[in-house]
Design a protein around this nucleic acid. Sequence first.
DNA 1: CGGTGTGAACGTTTTCACAGCC
DNA 2: GGCTGTGAAAACGTTCACACCG
Lengths: 236, 236
Amino acid sequence: MPEESASAGPAVPAHGRHIPPASLARLTVYLRVLGTMLTEGVERVSSEELAEAAGVNSPKLRKDLSYLGSYGTRGVGYDVPYLSGQISAALGLTLDWRVAIIGAGHLGRALAGYPGFGSRGFEVVALFDADPLAVGQEVGWLRISEVQSLEAVLEKTRANMAVLAVPAEAAQEMCTRLVNAGITSILSFAPVVLQAPPEVQIRKVDMATELQILAYHAQRAQVSAIATDAQARLMR
Amino acid sequence: MPEESASAGPAVPAHGRHIPPASLARLTVYLRVLGTMLTEGVERVSSEELAEAAGVNSPKLRKDLSYLGSYGTRGVGYDVPYLSGQISAALGLTLDWRVAIIGAGHLGRALAGYPGFGSRGFEVVALFDADPLAVGQEVGWLRISEVQSLEAVLEKTRANMAVLAVPAEAAQEMCTRLVNAGITSILSFAPVVLQAPPEVQIRKVDMATELQILAYHAQRAQVSAIATDAQARLMR
DNA sequence: CGGTGTGAACGTTTTCACAGCC
DNA sequence: GGCTGTGAAAACGTTCACACCG
């Protein structure tokens, strides 16, 4: 799983119960599955069906939903549009999220064109690059802005989130500028540990980390297989 | 954090102690930080220094390292090259990992060109796309292969890991073909729940999920701020 | 009766204090 | 003296059985 943010935010919020991080991550999956069901015209689901489609077991799903409230009907199940709306509201997806993407390499462009953003209340409002050759190019509906004008464009577009898709060397500097410009939610793809004040939420996605975790498990499977082989040979 | 795999693998391995998932994820970070220190010529670190650079506290770091063995010197600290080597070995990074990337859109190309792979023992050996216009194009040292020849190319290149960078609609079919071709480690960027046998390790990275988690925290911060405002006003 | 919602048991992760070694 | 390595305690997350309600 991607990685927990450096800052945990308010430990006990002023209003409403907080959702455990692990449940929060799964709720986004339920939401996606419910969205698919909505387009398929499914109107009701049981926890069993929804859990199956989301790849979890049903008690876990019910527990996760219980952090939000009681939105099901006993003996019946959940109303798909209603539950979907409640999860969206709980996650804050009914607010306007305007995302700036820093770095217009392949990754930044992939993100700018990612259909999953627009469909979930996230609007990409700016795309920056340091390369003068990239500046001015059109990517979808966006024109690449020069990174020198970061602060001005962030203000003009009223961006309230940023995605860092720049090389590792540039990440800390860009992070600092984003924070100084008032951004408090950052998703970083740069493989570095970013320093930022605790009120800034930073999430990191690191593809090398993901592959290394896969490698670890694959290696263990190999080692076990060899051990089993050796054992089998010894037992013959 | 990206997300835990659907299958947990052998619960108690034949040899060696297993590393808790949370520690495993952090170990990859320590390894990256140690790599940076190596290039900077740093030879020794204390747990305090390494923890600071990795963004964790030092007891946690020491606990994480203790799952691998005792590789430090009391009263002194850790030898950077040695510790780095030990972590690499424990994670299985001394083996040959040959990665096939499925999907040569912006994301697939970003991954193919990602410098963090080659530098950590992962070699990208194949890049596939379904679009006839993309097939044959050069991306770095690679030529894009047609996805029809997936099985043949996987066998020829002896790929033992795959990265799915295809649209959601195509992900399950590609996953099934990979599994049938003998791949047991898959990193998926497609926003869908993949069905695969339990022995197949699947990790998922979902950018929409990450932004939604950020939105949730940002919303709470907003709500708290409003609550504080209201409270402040009431208390005036 | 069927399926949700949840308290209580269980297992895992984190924290901490300090024993142990250089 | 200083810093690592680790057991024991606390916090946290998951599982489960079943109470409860439509």
